Simulated scan of single mutants.
Amino acid sequence: MPLNAMLERGLSELGSTAGCGQRERLLQFLELLRRWNRVYSLTAIEDPREGVRLHLLDSLSIASFLYGERVLDVGTGPGLPGIPLAIMQPDRRFVLLDCNAKKIRFVRQAVIELGLVNVVPVQARVESFTDPAGFDCVLARAYASLAEIWADASRLLKTGGSVLALKGRRPETELGDLPAGVAVGIHRLRVPGVDAERHLAELRPTGQDS
């Protein structure tokens, strides 16, 4: 099956509607990542078909959970899930954060080539990153435990904001390590063509002392 048809079918299974230009940008991003990966080793995934499933569709499986205007993608790596989400949700503003220079260099080039005016790449560690405006959503793609992600990211939330942490298996053992004052919702994700488990942990402050 051609990549475009594979992507279109996957988007349909996710209940997502994409214009022709958005699908072209998603595949352009995948091709750009493939070319840069030859030199910079940005990802272990080399097969374009696997890239559609594990980069594009996996990223977009959380699209319906985003809200508000400003989104921070912590540990974005080569722009995942931030760039696919920014392509599909042009009305939101995305800050893509990573401490790895070569990965942020790639993200900057991808933003230029894809014409993404709603994306700002930043090279910094999350522990030292500040933003006075705050974020409605902070995305974290399983770079640490839930407690560590919450400790790093919760201070960056606007009032009413949430941390969205992507995990594989349901993170039962990590839930007990969260501090008091954190409300947790666990959502099972279905990624077209991917049999492995995917879950999203939605963390919100309850207003209690932690």
Rank of each mutant, 00 (worst) to 15 (best):
V117F: 05
L146E: 03
V119L: 11
P2M: 10
S61M: 14
S162G: 12
P84T: 01
E24G: 09
L80P: 11
V182Q: 07
P171S: 07
A153S: 15
L175S: 07
E172S: 14
L96F: 04
T159F: 02
D73A: 09
V95N: 04
N100H: 15
V194P: 00
Q109F: 05
H187C: 10
R53M: 00
A147S: 14
L42S: 08
E46T: 14
R204C: 00
D136R: 01
G19Q: 15
T173H: 09
R108M: 11
P121N: 06
G77P: 05
P121R: 13
K158C: 07
A142E: 02
V120Q: 15
H187L: 10
A101L: 13
K103I: 00
F65L: 15
V39W: 10
G168V: 02
V71F: 01
F65A: 15
A147P: 05
Q28I: 04
N100Y: 00
K103R: 07
A201R: 04
F129L: 08
A86M: 03
L96Y: 14
L116E: 01
V74P: 03
R188A: 06
L42D: 09
R92A: 09
P78L: 02
S162I: 09
P121Q: 12
M1F: 12
L33A: 12
K158A: 01
L3T: 08
P205K: 14
A44E: 14
V182D: 03
L114H: 01
E197R: 11
G207Y: 03
G134N: 08
G68F: 06
N100V: 15
P171V: 13
V119K: 08
R190V: 14
Y40G: 08
A18T: 03
R93S: 09
S61E: 15
P171G: 14
G181T: 04
R34P: 03
S154Y: 11
I87W: 08
Y40Q: 12
V39K: 13
V71D: 02
C137N: 13
R38N: 10
E13W: 05
D177M: 12
I149T: 04
L7T: 06
R155N: 05
E24M: 13
Q109L: 15
F135Q: 01
S128H: 02
D47E: 12
E113Y: 00
K158G: 04
L166K: 02
L178A: 07
Q109K: 15
T159C: 07
C137Y: 05
N118H: 10
R70G: 04
W36H: 06
Q89R: 14
E46Y: 01
S61W: 14
D136F: 05
W36S: 09
K102P: 06
H199F: 02
E69H: 05
A144Q: 09
L166I: 05
R38H: 08
G75V: 04
A151C: 13
L26M: 12
E46Q: 10
E148G: 02
D136Y: 00
P90R: 04
L178E: 08
P179H: 14
L114E: 05
L116W: 03
D136M: 06
K158P: 00
L42F: 12
V184D: 01
Y143C: 03
K102L: 12
F29V: 06
L11F: 09
P132V: 10
E46G: 11
P84Q: 07
A86F: 07
D73V: 07
R169T: 04
V138E: 05
L116I: 09
E174C: 03
L114I: 08
V163C: 07
L175A: 00
A5P: 01
A180T: 08
L97N: 08
E50Y: 00
